[in-house]
C-alpha cells in the first residue's frame, strides 16, 4: 500500500530539471581542473555537481554559476571563468580540454 507516494498530482517528479531556467542567468561557469574534494558536491544548491566514478562531475545545464564550488574546493581545483566577454569572445581556459 502507498508504494508510490504521489508527488505533486499534476506535475511530473523533478520536472523543473528538464528545463532549468537558472543556467541562462549564468555570468560565470566553473571549470573543474583537478578537484579532488568530493564534499563540494554537497555545497552546490542546484545539484549540478555529482560524483561519477569517484570524481566530481559537472552538469552545466543545472549550474547557475554561483561560484560556491570554486570558493569551497580546498585544493583550488575549480576555477570560475566568464561565460561571455562581449566582442572579445570567451577567454581560453588553462587546462580545459
Amino acid at each position: 500500500m502507498a508504494k508510490n507516494l504521489p508527488i505533486v498530482p499534476t506535475a511530473k517528479p523533478g520536472s523543473m530539471a528538464e528545463t532549468p531556467a537558472g543556467s541562462t542567468w549564468r555570468e560565470k561557469r566553473p571549470v573543474l581542473m583537478n578537484c579532488t574534494c568530493l564534499e563540494v558536491t554537497l555545497y552546490c544548491p542546484d545539484g549540478a555537481l555529482s560524483i561519477v566514478e569517484g570524481k566530481v562531475s559537472l552538469d552545466l545545464n543545472l549550474c547557475k554559476g554561483c561560484g560556491i564550488c570554486a570558493n569551497e574546493c580546498k585544493d583550488g581545483g575549480i576555477q570560475m571563468v566568464p561565460e561571455y566577454t562581449g566582442a572579445q569572445g570567451v577567454f581560453p581556459v588553462k587546462g580545459e580540454e
Binding site: G14, S15, M16, A17, E18, T19, P20, A21, G22, W25, R26, L42, Y43, C44, P45, D46, G47, A48, S50, L62, K64, G65, C66, G67, I68
Partner: peptide, 18 residues
Amino acid sequence: EELFGQGNGGCKACGAAI
C-alpha cells in the same frame, strides 16, 4: 539520487536549497 534541488527556481547560491 537527487530528490530535491535540480532545476530549482531559487536565486543562485541559495543557502535554503543547499
